[in-house]
């Protein structure tokens, strides 16, 4: 199945946005404004949906006219594109979205046609699957690590680089002692938070 690459799943959702001429602010504009103001980085709601490596939300206004002699045509609806590169299976992911960030999901998808809400997680999952488009080809450079494993590995790389620098020229006994202390410390370090823009700053805060 092209949605899958190793343990990664490429979710592509196209949700039609409500077109209501009577609303004071169009749904696509309201949605764009909401997304503009949605917290980012370590405060992003997607930090709570643990399988999310990368995701994006895009209001797709129309298709593109590439110039004559191609025909010019237009969409009759605008679509919200939700695109997630996630670890694991789709059902568990949608269930986690409904459980962990219900208010955000409601705020976003309530601008879309036929959205049933997350109060009934199975109705929400069925809705998302109706909006899903099968990914034709999915490339994942690393396809077998969870977000947690990736964050841990990045933390280890930074910590070990610092250890090497600190212990250049150490005696064999000193090196052994320092490594034992280092290994004990790094294994106890809390996981760096997902979404932070600068690992060094989050590290300093942890230390």
């Amino acid at each position: 199945m092209a949605n899958q690459n190793g343990n990664m799943y490429g979710l592509t959702i196209l949700s039609p946005i409500i077109d209501d001429p009577k609303s004071k602010v169009s749904h696509d504009s309201a949605l764009r404004l909401y997304l503009q103001n949605m917290p980012r980085h370590a405060y992003s709601p997607f930090t709570k949906v643990s399988g999310t490596h990368f995701c994006r939300l895009v209001v797709m206004d129309d298709v593109v006219f590439v110039g004559s002699p191609a025909a010019e045509e237009h969409l009759k609806s605008k679509y919200l594109v939700f695109n997630s590169n996630l670890y694991g299976g789709l059902d568990a992911y949608l269930a986690e979205m409904a459980r962990k960030i219900p208010d955000v999901v409601d705020d976003i998808w309530s601008h879309c046609v036929g959205y049933p809400g997350v109060a009934d997680p199975s109705a929400f999952a069925a809705y998302m699957k109706k909006c899903q488009i099968e990914t034709t080809f999915f490339f994942a450079d690393v396809n077998d690590k969870t977000v947690e494993q990736t964050l841990r590995a990045l933390q280890m790389k930074v910590e070990f680089t610092a250890f090497i620098e600190r212990n250049q020229g150490a005696s064999p006994a000193g090196l052994l002692r320092e490594f034992a202390a280092f290994w004990e410390r790094v294994r106890e370090l809390p996981l760096p938070p997902a979404g932070v823009k600068d690992l060094a700053k989050s590290h300093a805060a942890i230390a």
Binding site: T52, V66, D141, V142, T150, G195, K197
Partner: peptide, 27 residues
């Protein structure tokens, strides 16, 4: 043919994919 992203999230903005692969090898 490109259109812009309204909201973009990554769990590790500070890391390139080369950083991730290197980190996994180090780990």
């Amino acid at each position: 043919v490109q259109f812009d992203t309204d909201y973009y999230y990554t769990a590790y903005p500070y890391a390139t994919t080369s950083d991730v692969k290197a980190a996994i090898r180090v780990d």
